[in-house]
Every structure is written in C-alpha cells, then in structure tokens.
Design a protein around this nucleic acid. Structure first.
Length: 462
RNA sequence: GGCGAGUUGGCAGAGCGGUGAUGCAACAGAUUGCAAAUCUGUAUUAGGCCGGUUCGACUCCGGUGCUCGCCUCCA
C-alpha cells in the first residue's frame, strides 16, 4: 500500500487516486529567465523518481509540469540582455531540457506554458470576479480578495488576522487589503502584454498554475508537487483561486521537496549561493548527481558540497564495480524476490529512496560474492540490481562507460590505453619499476588500474 | 513573533519499544609482483539535554537547547 506524506494534513496517508489506476500529477516548474541550479535539479529528479516508480508499479501517470515564461524577472532579464522575451525563454527552455536529459529526467507528459494559456487564465479571472473573489482595481490590476476565501491558509496553517498584522507596508494602494495578490497585472509602457477585459496586461504568477492545471488535468486532481519555497504563498494562493473558481477540492495530495543547502543555508537565487546544473556536470558524472539527490529522502534537506558529491561517487562506483564484469543477462525484474519486496516496501513508504538504496547495496554484496565464487547466480543478482535501479532511473549505463567517464580536461582514454600497453610490456619483462611508474603516473591523473586474469581494467577515481 | 521540519556512530543516512540498516572512512585478515577491486572480520564508534511512561526507549509522552525552512521574488 503506497503511503504519501501530504503537506496539507502533515501526515502520511494511504494513496488512492481519484480514477483507479490513473494518477494525475501537476508539479510547479521553472521560471525560465536563467539556467537551472541544483535546487531545481532536486525537484526535477524527485518527481521523476516518483513518476518512474509509480509507472513501474502499474499506475498510469499523467505528469504535468508548467513553464513560467512571462513574469517580472523574465522581462527585466530580457531587457538587460537586449533580447526579446521569446528569445530568452526559448534559450532557457532548451537549456533546461538539456540539463534534464543529462540527469536522466524523463520529460513530463505535458509542459504547458503560461503564454500559451492566456485565454484560460483570463477566463478563470473572470469567473473569480463574477463570484466576488476578485476585483479590478483602478490601476488596471486585478486582485484576489483573500479575506473572502474562508479557508485561506489551510495548507500552511496561516491565520488571516496574523498575516494582516505582519503584512509589510504596501506601496501599492490599489488593493483593498494588503493580503490581496495580483491575478492580472496591467502592462507598463512597452512591456509584453495581452489584451484583456481589464486592459493590456499579463497574468500574475499564481493564476497560471490554477488555470493550466485545470486545463491539463481537470478541476480536481491527485498530486500537486513543487519545491520547498512554494507552499506559501504560491500553493496557498492556488488553492484559493481554484477552489473559489471551481467550487470543489483542488488537490488531494500536496508534496514538497526539501531544500538543497550549501554551508547550512538554502541554495537560492537571492542568496547567490547556487551552482548551475551544467557547471556541476562539467566536473561530475550526471548519474553521480542523480544518485546524490536520491540518496537522501526527498523531504529532507540535502547538503551540497564537494565532499557529499565525492561520497555519492564512491557509492555509485561500488554499484558499477560490482556490475562490471558480471555476466550479462536479461535485466528482467523478479518481482517475487526478497529484494523486490523490500525495495517496494521502502518506496511505498513515501518514496523512501535511502532505504531502497540499502536494498540495492545488499544486492551488491550478493553479486560480489557470487562473482568471486564464479556462481551462476551472479547473472541473476546483476539483473536484479540493474532492474531495481532502473525503476528509479539509476544503473542503466554500461559499467565501463560510467567508470571511465571523463570530466573536462582529463586524460583521454586513448592515452590511458597506450600507457597500459606499455606497462603490459614492462610487466612481461619483469620491469616492475617502470610498471609502477606508469601506475603512479596514471594515479596522479585520477586513473586507477586493475590487473586481473583478463588483463588490465581501468577507471577514473576523482 | 507566527507556522513547519530536523537533532542518530568519524561523516552521510534509514528503520525500529527488546535481535544495534546501508554507504563512505578507519582497523585487522584473505587476495595481489606492487596495487585496485572484492571478500571476511573489528569496534569498549550512536541516538542534543532534563524528566516521565515501561520489565525494557534511539524509538512513546512532557519540557528544554540548538539547527534549518516558510512568513518578500526564489525549486
């Protein structure tokens, strides 16, 4: 029985989709004004793992993740760059897709873009106005009337009175209440805008998700996910918009990934302590990064550092060292095995990947023992390891492709092979001094040699 | 200040009211020309602190310290 931790109820709950066997999931995606960083990668990988696992267990998943392709930051950045909003967002979307692909993140089934759903957005704002939950202000903006929505704050335990007391002094006086948030934003001169009943403008941030999720998945759906900074105000506001407009429950299960930290602080744009995915991938195998993100439960914070990535690499090396040289077989999953059972139990418990990983390591031990003793079961264990890893998008590379993966500026495979040939000749001549010299020389460049009965294997270890 | 999460062995990180995951590191042995990988074993290596419940608590309850997140654009 799958259990999911629901931010709304702050507890794990048995998961039951609205339509048996078919799950509808919406995840808040990226505002495409800059390159994605490791925090973004975490959300991508988290919901990719979840989607893959759910599908592997026989559920259908309709996975929607939006792209915010118009907002203040985008407009400002485009102006700074002297390029159009379209050019900027097209570049950033392409970059995001490259980053995702590198991390083995499968594309969502639908990636709706705000600018392609302006009509849906306007329609929802009109509904909210008609129902009294929104009003057009004198400045051309349209605002949501927060205090009209009785259960405002239910996701994050906010109390409207306290929010009002703590509200910052507003420069904007067109609002009835400082808590009100913008649904439709009047365009300034020369800004990208669309026509609307309230004049030229563009959507506010929160409304796009309400409108697009409704368009793609319907008025009520199963899972809504996002990053750690989204519950308030974004998701709170989405609930207010959608439930007021549609008159029914918006989402059954809310899921939020934990933050990526750097030196005990959240990695974020505003702190400037972020590492872009592509910068990290220059120095690390993408699967190491994926493994790193999966090695901690998705709701916990995870610390990004050189050391933690090194440790992730050491762990993943162990998997591929075990797989390397193992008899190749069909990676057909034995769903009845103890390993599968334990793996499923772990994943069914709110997607507990660290626990699932422990099962994979147990399999590594069995595989290594079987290999050492030349047992036929080695092929079976290797297949189970690959198959279970595959359920969460890991361990699908050829072992040597992984083990010999070169980071930028590292010695080439050809150069290594040449030195290995030279060393082989030296060893044949019992010139161990030269042999060790070559070993040391390669070691300095992060290349480790393994002499075995089949000859010399090598891998990179940095 | 309000709301929420966390606090486990050298580090990372799970589960569990009683049999001390898993990975990295360390140590010992096997193996190796030397290594690496691997295997076997080791630990007097844990459970912020103070109380309580219990035959027994890391695991439950109360208090308290500390850390972190959200409360403003941010995944």
């Amino acid at each position: 029985m799958l259990q999911i931790y629901n931010t709304l109820t702050k507890s794990k709950q048995p998961f039951t989709p609205i339509n048996p066997g078919q799950i509808r999931m919406y995840v808040c995606g990226i505002t495409v004004y800059d390159l994605c960083h490791i925090g973004h990668a975490r959300v991508m990988v988290c919901f990719d793992l979840i989607t893959r696992y759910l599908r592997a267990r026989g559920w259908g998943v309709d996975y929607v993740r939006n792209i915010t392709d118009v907002d203040d930051k985008i407009i400002r950045r485009a102006a700074e760059n002297g390029e159009s909003v379209d050019d900027l967002t097209a570049r950033m979307i392409a970059a995001m897709h490259e980053d995702e692909a590198a991390l083995s993140v499968l594309r969502p089934d639908q990636e709706p873009r705000a600018t392609r759903h302006i009509d849906d957005i306007i329609a929802m704002v009109q509904t909210l106005i008609a129902k009294g939950f929104a009003y057009a202000a004198t400045n051309g903006d349209v605002y949501y009337r927060v205090e009209k929505f009785a259960s405002y704050g239910k996701l994050t335990n906010k109390v409207v009175e306290e929010l009002r007391a703590g509200a910052r002094v507003e420069v904007e006086t067109a609002k009835e209440s400082p808590l009100d948030f913008v649904l439709w934003k009047a365009a300034k001169e020369g800004e990208l805008s669309w026509q609307s009943p309230w004049g030229d403008g563009r959507p506010g941030w929160h409304i796009e998700c309400s409108a697009m999720s409704k368009c793609c998945l319907g008025e009520t759906f199963d899972i809504h996910g996002g990053g750690p900074d989204l519950p308030f105000p974004h998701h709170e506001n989405e609930i207010a918009q959608s439930e007021a407009a549609n008159g029914q429950t918006y989402v059954n299960y809310w899921m939020h990934a934990g933050p990526v930290r750097v030196n005990a602080e959240k990695m974020s744009k505003s702190l400037g302590n972020f590492f872009t995915i592509r910068d990290v991938l220059k120095e690390h195998n993408p699967e190491v990064v994926r493994y790193f993100l999966a090695s901690v439960h998705y709701r916990s914070h995870i610390d990004y550092s050189v050391d933690s990535l090194r440790e992730a690499k050491a762990a993943l090396d162990r998997f591929y060292q075990a797989l390397e040289g193992a008899p190749a077989g069909e990676a057909q999953l034995d769903e009845q095995s103890d390993y599968s059972t334990r793996f499923f139990e772990a994943m069914d418990d709110d997607f507990n990947t660290p626990r699932a990983m422990a099962v994979l390591f147990d399999l590594v031990g069995e595989l290594n023992r079987a290999k050492a003793e030349g047992l036929e079961t080695a092929a079976y264990y290797a297949a189970q390891l690959r198959a279970l890893g595959g359920l969460i998008g890991l361990l699908q590379q050829e072992p040597n492709a992984y083990l010999q993966h070169a980071a930028d500026g590292e010695i080439s495979a050809e150069a290594i092979e040449a030195l290995i040939v030279e060393r082989k000749e030296a060893r044949a001549a019992k010139d161990f001094a030269r042999s060790d010299e070559i070993r040391d020389q390669l070691a300095e460049q992060g290349v480790v040699l393994k002499d075995g009965p089949e000859g010399t294997q090598w891998y990179r270890d940095q």
